[in-house]
Amino acid sequence: KKVLATKVLGTVKWFNVRNGYGFINRNDTKEDVFVHQTAIKKNNPRKYLRSVGDGETVEFDVVEGEKGAEAANVTGPDGVPVEGSR
């Protein structure tokens, strides 16, 4: 997949743990970017399912997906594990 941007910060708009996807709002362009649970690189080690929490700040790369921009290599800021869904 073509990389459109790297090390982008954003805020998780919503994430559905059961369906394994959601959207992140980019801090720079204010665009919403699709995020799938497989894109989460560093999950909260205390959680079994990969997820990001609503309102959580995350860092990610933006790649060209089949339906437009999507997140890849999702971590917390500066590469720490994500907090995950509460």
Rank of each mutant, 00 (worst) to 15 (best):
S85I: 10
G55F: 06
S51W: 11
H36Q: 06
R50N: 15
K41W: 09
T75M: 07
A69S: 09
K13E: 03
R86Y: 12
P77D: 06
V80T: 13
G20F: 06
G22I: 01
G20W: 08
A69M: 13
S51K: 10
V80R: 14
A5E: 10
V35D: 04
K30Q: 09
G10L: 00
V74D: 04
T6H: 12
K13G: 01
N73A: 04
T11R: 10
T11L: 07
T6P: 06
G53I: 13
V62W: 00
D78C: 14
I24W: 04
G65D: 04
D54A: 15
R86W: 11
I24M: 03
K7D: 06
D28P: 00
V35K: 01
N43A: 14
D78H: 09
N44S: 11
K2V: 04
W14N: 07
V33M: 01
N27D: 10
I40G: 02
N27M: 09
E83Y: 09
F60W: 02
V74T: 02
V80H: 12
F15W: 07
D32I: 00
F34A: 05
P45D: 12
K41R: 10
T11V: 11
A69G: 05
A39V: 03
E31N: 07
F15V: 01
A39N: 05
E66Y: 07
Q37V: 15
Y48E: 13
W14T: 07
N16H: 05
L4D: 04
N27G: 06
S51C: 12
G76S: 14
T6C: 07
G65A: 05
E64N: 07
V80N: 13
V8A: 03
P81V: 10
I24H: 01
W14A: 04
R18H: 09
P45S: 14
N16E: 05
Q37R: 15
H36C: 06
V35C: 09
W14C: 06
N73P: 04
V17T: 14
K47D: 15
T11F: 08
K42D: 13
N43D: 12
S51V: 13
F60S: 06
V12C: 04
D32H: 01
V17W: 09
Y21V: 05
T6L: 07
K13R: 08
D61K: 01
A5R: 03
F23M: 08
E66S: 11
I40C: 05
W14F: 08
K13T: 07
V12P: 03
G22A: 02
K7S: 08
V63M: 06
V33G: 02
K41Q: 10
G68W: 04
K7I: 05
V17Q: 13
E31P: 00
L4K: 06
K13P: 01
N25Y: 07
A5N: 06
N25C: 13
P81R: 10
V63E: 04
K42T: 15
D78T: 13
I24S: 02
T75E: 06
A71W: 00
R18K: 15
E70V: 10
R86S: 13
D54S: 15
Y21K: 00
A72Y: 07
V82H: 10
F23Q: 05
R18D: 09
F15C: 00
V58M: 03
F23I: 09
K13H: 02
D28E: 02
L49P: 12
P45Q: 13
H36Y: 05
F34S: 05
E59K: 09
F60H: 04
R26Y: 01
D61R: 01
V8F: 02
K67H: 11
S85Q: 12
I40S: 01
T57N: 08
R26S: 02
N73S: 05
V3T: 08
G65Q: 04
N44C: 12
K41Y: 08
G65F: 00
D54R: 15
F34H: 06
K13F: 01
N25D: 01
P81S: 12
R50M: 12
K2F: 00
G68C: 05
D54K: 15
N19E: 12
A5V: 06
N16I: 05
D78G: 15
P45W: 10
V58K: 03
W14M: 06
T38M: 07
P45F: 09
I24D: 04
G53T: 14
V63L: 08
W14L: 03
G20K: 09
V33L: 07
R26Q: 04
G79C: 10
K67F: 08
D61I: 04
V63I: 09
T57W: 07
G65C: 07
D78N: 15
K1N: 08
T75Y: 06
N44A: 11
K1Q: 02
F60Q: 03
R18M: 08
Y21M: 06
K42P: 10
G84E: 13
Y48R: 15
G68V: 02
K47Q: 14
D54L: 12
E56K: 08
A72C: 09
E83F: 09
G65L: 00
V63Y: 06
Y21L: 05
G76C: 15
Q37D: 06
V3N: 07
D28Q: 01
N43L: 13
T11N: 04
S85P: 13
A39Q: 09
D32F: 00
A39Y: 05
L49T: 12
R18N: 11
P45R: 14
P77H: 10
V58Y: 01
E70I: 09
V80D: 10
N43G: 14
V12H: 00
N25I: 15
R50C: 11
H36P: 06
G76D: 09
A72V: 13
F23G: 03
G20I: 07
R46M: 11
V8M: 03
V52L: 15
G20T: 02
V62Y: 00
V74P: 00
F15S: 05
E83L: 14
N44R: 11
E56Y: 07
R18T: 09
A69D: 07
V82S: 12
G55K: 06
N25E: 12
P81N: 13
V33R: 01
G76R: 15
A69P: 15
V35W: 08
N43Y: 14
R86C: 11
V82N: 09
P45Y: 09
D78S: 14
D28H: 01
L9T: 15
G20C: 07
S85M: 12
K7G: 10
G65E: 01
L9R: 15
V12G: 01
N19W: 12
Y21N: 05
K30Y: 07
V74I: 06
L9C: 08
V3Q: 06
L4R: 01
L4F: 05
V82P: 12
E56F: 08
V82L: 15
A39T: 05
V35Y: 06
D32R: 00
R18C: 07
I40E: 04
V52K: 05
K47W: 11
N44T: 10
T38Q: 08
V3G: 03
N43V: 13
N16R: 03
F60P: 00
K67I: 04
E59V: 14
D28L: 00
G20M: 07
V17L: 09
K47P: 09
I24P: 01
L9M: 12
N27R: 06
A69L: 14
F15N: 06
V33W: 00
L9D: 07
P81K: 12
K42G: 15
L4E: 05
G79V: 12
G53E: 15
S85F: 10
V52D: 06
E56M: 14
E83W: 10
K7F: 01
R50D: 10
K1Y: 06
A39F: 03
K2A: 03
R86G: 14
Y48V: 13
E64Y: 09
G68N: 03
D78M: 12
P77M: 14
N16G: 02
T6D: 04
P77C: 13
Y21I: 06
R50K: 12
G10W: 00
D32N: 05
R86E: 14
V62R: 01
R86V: 13
Q37W: 15
E70S: 06
F23W: 10
R50Q: 12
V58W: 05
P77A: 11
R26L: 00
K7M: 05
G68Y: 07
E66P: 14
D61H: 00
V82F: 12
N43I: 11
G53F: 14
P45H: 13
T11M: 07
G22S: 02
V63R: 03
V58S: 01
N16Y: 01
E83T: 13
V8T: 04
V12L: 07
R50V: 11
D28A: 01
E56R: 08
T57M: 09
A71N: 01
N43F: 13
Y21P: 02
V58D: 02
N16A: 03
K67L: 09
N44Y: 11
K13V: 10
D54G: 15
V35H: 04
V74E: 03
K13Y: 00
I40L: 10
K67N: 12
Y21G: 04
K47L: 10
D28T: 00
H36S: 08
L9E: 10
V35L: 10
F60N: 02
G84Y: 08
N43R: 13
G53V: 14
S51E: 09
A72D: 08
D61F: 07
P77N: 08
A5S: 08
T57E: 09
E31S: 05
V74W: 03
E31W: 00
E66L: 12
V82E: 11
G84F: 14
V3C: 05
N27A: 09
L4T: 08
